[in-house]
Amino acid sequence: ESFERTINIAKGNSSLGMTVSANKDGLGMIVRSIIHGGAISRDGRIAIGDCILSINEESTISVTNAQARAMLRRHSLIGPDIKITYVP
């Protein structure tokens, strides 16, 4: 059984350190890789294959690959914290 989780990740000045791609069925974006030493890796809660539904409350539903990457990059630049809703 999968259910949504919303977490805050304190990334400070470091990068999030993950790559994503659009989910084929349009439901959010899938975590493709996690870079060791990045904020996601240090936090430890998000794993490869998890589905991200929103970043800082901006929905990732029906985004393209390019939009998913641009959204991740944009939110990575805002502030020291990032809020991610995902399904493990």
Rank of each mutant, 00 (worst) to 15 (best):
E1I: 14
E1G: 06
E1F: 15
E1H: 05
S2M: 13
F3T: 09
F3R: 10
F3E: 09
E4P: 10
E4H: 11
E4Y: 13
R5P: 01
R5E: 07
T6Q: 07
T6M: 05
I7L: 05
I7G: 02
I7T: 02
N8S: 14
N8R: 12
A10L: 10
A10C: 13
K11W: 04
K11N: 12
K11E: 05
K11Q: 09
G12N: 10
N13T: 13
S14C: 13
L16S: 01
L16E: 01
L16M: 06
G17V: 00
M18I: 12
M18L: 11
M18V: 09
M18R: 02
T19E: 12
T19Q: 11
T19H: 13
V20L: 15
S21C: 10
S21M: 11
S21I: 11
S21T: 13
N23M: 06
N23C: 12
K24G: 11
K24N: 11
D25C: 09
D25H: 13
D25K: 14
G26Y: 02
G26E: 06
L27H: 15
L27A: 15
L27T: 14
L27V: 15
L27Q: 15
L27W: 11
G28C: 03
G28F: 03
M29E: 04
M29Y: 03
I30R: 09
V31D: 01
V31C: 04
V31E: 01
R32Q: 14
S33Y: 06
S33F: 03
I34H: 02
I34N: 03
I34M: 06
I34P: 02
I35R: 14
I35C: 11
H36V: 13
G38M: 05
G38R: 05
A39F: 02
A39R: 05
A39L: 06
A39G: 04
I40V: 13
S41H: 15
S41F: 12
S41A: 14
R42T: 10
R42W: 02
R42M: 11
D43G: 02
D43I: 01
D43Y: 04
D43P: 01
D43N: 00
G44E: 03
G44K: 07
G44D: 04
G44L: 02
G44N: 07
G44R: 06
R45C: 02
R45L: 01
I46F: 03
I46R: 03
I46Q: 02
I46K: 04
I46W: 00
I46P: 00
A47T: 12
A47L: 07
A47N: 14
A47M: 10
I48H: 06
G49E: 01
D50I: 00
D50C: 01
D50L: 00
D50Y: 01
C51R: 15
C51Y: 07
C51K: 13
I52R: 00
I52K: 01
I52T: 02
S54G: 12
S54P: 00
I55G: 01
N56L: 01
E57P: 00
E58T: 06
E58P: 00
E58D: 09
S59D: 07
S59V: 05
S59Q: 10
T60D: 03
I61D: 11
S62A: 14
S62Y: 11
T64N: 10
T64Q: 01
T64V: 03
T64R: 03
T64M: 02
N65Y: 06
N65C: 09
N65S: 11
N65Q: 11
N65E: 13
N65H: 07
A66V: 09
A66E: 15
Q67D: 10
Q67T: 11
A68Q: 05
A68W: 08
A68I: 09
R69A: 14
R69M: 13
R69F: 09
R69D: 14
A70E: 15
A70Q: 15
M71D: 03
L72I: 11
L72R: 01
R73K: 13
R74Y: 10
H75N: 09
H75I: 14
H75V: 13
H75D: 07
H75F: 12
H75G: 09
H75L: 12
S76I: 06
S76P: 04
I78L: 15
I78S: 15
G79S: 12
G79K: 09
G79V: 06
P80W: 07
P80S: 15
D81A: 09
D81R: 07
I82Y: 06
K83M: 06
K83H: 07
K83N: 10
I84A: 01
I84R: 02
I84F: 11
I84V: 08
T85I: 05
T85H: 06
T85A: 07
Y86P: 01
Y86A: 02
Y86M: 05
Y86S: 00
V87T: 10
P88V: 02
P88D: 04
P88R: 10
P88K: 12
P88I: 00
